[in-house]
Amino acid sequence: MRIPILKLKDCLLVSIQWELDDQTALQFQEDLLKKIHETNARGVVIDITSIDFIDSFIAKVLGDVINMSRLMGAKVVITGIQPAVAITLVELGIRLDDVMTALDLEKGLEKLQQELGD
């Protein structure tokens, strides 16, 4: 099952609706980077509101995707991380220090617009 990636003006929207398995996560990484290349997007919002559980591999893939996107000139905001997920991530020692985060999709888009300067 592939994760749909939507384009909105110069941003890409991704909403992850179900728990990712390793294969899907890697597929998603490839798809997103391809899409960024195709559309010349300047920003990406990844919404994970519906995810209640995250393991270290998925967290690593997410971190990688963010770094890769940055290399390609797109800023990434992760939105809707659930409290339980946040606790797990912190306990796993995954910081996502320099990643932008926001409470929900709306605020994430706002933040992205601000960062992109328009």
Binding site: I78, T79, G80, I81, Q82, P83, V85, A86, I87, L89, V90, E91, R95, L96, D97, T101, A102, L103, D104, K107, G108
Partner: peptide, 12 residues
Amino acid sequence: IQAAEAVHLVGA
């Protein structure tokens, strides 16, 4: 510090 990091993750 852990709490602050977790707060950052949920977007505040």
